[in-house]
Amino acid sequence: MRRTGIAETCIGIFILALLAGITAWVYFAQSLFDPDFYSVTLLKEGNGAYRKNSLPSPGSGPVPAFLPENLTPMGPEETFDSETLSDKIDGKADLYLSSGFVKLRTRRFASKADPKSWLELFIYEMGDPTKAFSVYSSQKRKDARPVDLGVSAYSTEDAFFFTNGPDYFEIISASKDLAEEMTSLAKNLVEAGPKYTGQQTEASLFPPESLDESSISLHMSDVFGFSALDRVYTASYSMGAAQVTAFLSKRESAEEAADLAATYGRFLVENGAEEAGAIPGAPDSKIYKVFNAYEVVLHRGEFLAGTHDVDNMESATDVASRIYRKLDEAGR
């Protein structure tokens, strides 16, 4: 065996000494850990006992140009970012934070005629139109009444909900007497905002026959309980007595769509589904019998589509085959 030279020995000893020094320093530094330092940091960040939000003061702040004449501000605008959103909406913050939330602006307005009648405006900045549509559609109320504002919009007995470009709006009223004011405010907000066109093109690929247009929703993650399935539009079809949920998702490439169709199919099988053939004339489709329901999964070009949790196979395949043809036409 070759004997080491003096230089090599010295370098080796130096490296070992250096490592020993580093170890000793780490050990010493840990022994000096001061937990109070971290507590103090937390206290400054808001771990104090009482959180002070901005306190509204009547009539403060400028009157926004979009405000109808018969409303007056009850206080200044409040803003919330991703760190403070839950201070305003508590557990519902998750819905927005998981969908790209940027900022929330809120402000209350009272009726000039009856100051006890008031409403609150929420403007959620979501970053892009798809994300705004996602939070809009996923909270849609069952008794929603469509509203013609030129954007996706609906109203309920005491509220207005709509989306315009990357923003999602809520107008929530404390009184049923403010319906007119809510409508005016919503119209003004849409007119005052930038014009967005060409939104939600995927939603237009749902075949229109028997489609409940107001049911179109966008789900951003964990769709149908499958973690890999994201950015999926769903829509309801009335097929006689049966309700059919159809789904559609544009992927990055045809390969991704095909892969996702396959992995989602495997997920269904792993959870008790059985393969039950394919739609005639649609080679890229598979029918699954999931206990007493049916699921059709297909891919066409960059699109993954199908029907979900349908009571009978005929309705499931009927809607799915129409989607297949529509995607075929769109691809030509």
């Binding site: 109320r141 309920t156 929530i172």
Partner: peptide
């Protein structure tokens, strides 16, 4: 029954 805990409408 929906959109809790803030709700936002009597529809919830």
């Amino acid at each position: 029954i929906s959109n809790g805990p803030t709700g936002g409408s009597v529809s919830d």
